[in-house]
Nucleic acid binder design. Structure first.
Lengths: 174, 174
DNA sequence: CGCAATTGTATTGCACGCAATATAATCGGG
DNA sequence: CCCGATTATATTGCGTGCAATACAATTGCG
């Protein structure tokens, strides 16, 4: 049996590293069914697909819908505030907001007190769209076979996970 | 007080539709904090951002990592089978698989028995990458402040939600 | 066997999502 | 008051996601 040069009895040196017990455990942790990230990723994609036909009817994409939800809740916000609310940066929001402006739903103007900031505000048309969007949540619930309590459970878990991940991202950023 | 032309007492006709009790309830259902879709969407984005530095080290994007996980689990699968596993279609997978082939991690070849199908198989390099990827799950767990039980709870909820949404999507498709 | 319908991928076009970079406005120390 | 550092947004480049479309291989019906 092979031995380390020191003479101390250790794991056989000729044994490939990926056949140790610990290495096998790490390999097994790569199974799709053991991931948290995969069902989260796939469920997000599926939800987007389920929303699409409903949002097509009011001329919005899924991220655009989220921006409108944010503005209906609190109007006249800067790009940065919207990004903080939705966890998106200017690279995503700038072109998206331009498309919403092209569609006549929002207006973008520089803040008077600080010309670096761009304030996004609803137009009359953007505000009016809320009445048509008001049918969307109910229509989605009809499409998803979940009891009210299950839905609430999922929602609570998702918000909890979101806050945990947000904390993790903040910690990495130092 | 205004009345309907029929003379039957109804909700005042002059009252705007969006001030009825039911309409207010639908409007309130548009709040971001009441959504399931939003934390799911945002958590997916955040997870991708947390994975990125780890996956950069082995030259993969997040969706590419998922494809490799699928292939490490079961090699030599058609594009359609991979799509079914990962809930993605050829429009996403075709260019992604080409990039994996360019990187020397997989080989794509037409099936002998049915030339419509493209079989994706790991190269020696692609198989070898698994050993380096084996550190990723543990590194992610270190970054996310979750107890093992919490993690398992989230994972179970996410898989449950994924299956529910998959059912909903299948029902829509008829 | 012939041919229309079906199946499996690829391609196209558009909209994200984000790192890296650029640019303009503001702030702050000297 | 000036100039370097900081802040807020925009732009660029690349890689997804996905509907719509195209196309080749296969199937199935007469």
């Amino acid at each position: 049996m092979a031995r380390a040069r020191s003479g101390v009895a250790v794991v056989p040196a000729v044994k490939p590293a990926n056949t140790t017990r610990a290495a096998r455990a790490r390999i097994e942790a790569l199974q799709l069914s053991r991931q948290l990230c995969f069902p989260l990723y796939a469920a997000g994609n599926l939800l987007g697909r389920l929303y699409r036909p409903l949002l097509d009817a009011i001329g919005l994409t899924y991220p655009q819908y989220l921006v409108m939800l944010a503005l209906w809740e609190r109007d006249a916000r800067s790009v940065g505030e919207l990004g903080e609310t939705l966890f998106l940066d200017s690279g995503t929001l700038s072109p998206l907001l331009k498309r919403l402006e092209q569609a006549g739903l929002v207006q973008r103007r520089r803040a008077i007190d600080d010309e670096r900031r761009v304030v996004v505000a609803l137009t009359a048309q953007g505000l009016a769209l809320r009445d048509r969007a008001a049918d969307v949540p109910e229509a989605m619930l009809c499409r998803i076979p979940l009891k009210g309590s299950e839905l609430a459970g999922h929602r609570e878990k998702m918000w909890s996970l979101l806050h945990t991940l947000q904390q993790a991202a903040a910690d990495i950023a130092d």
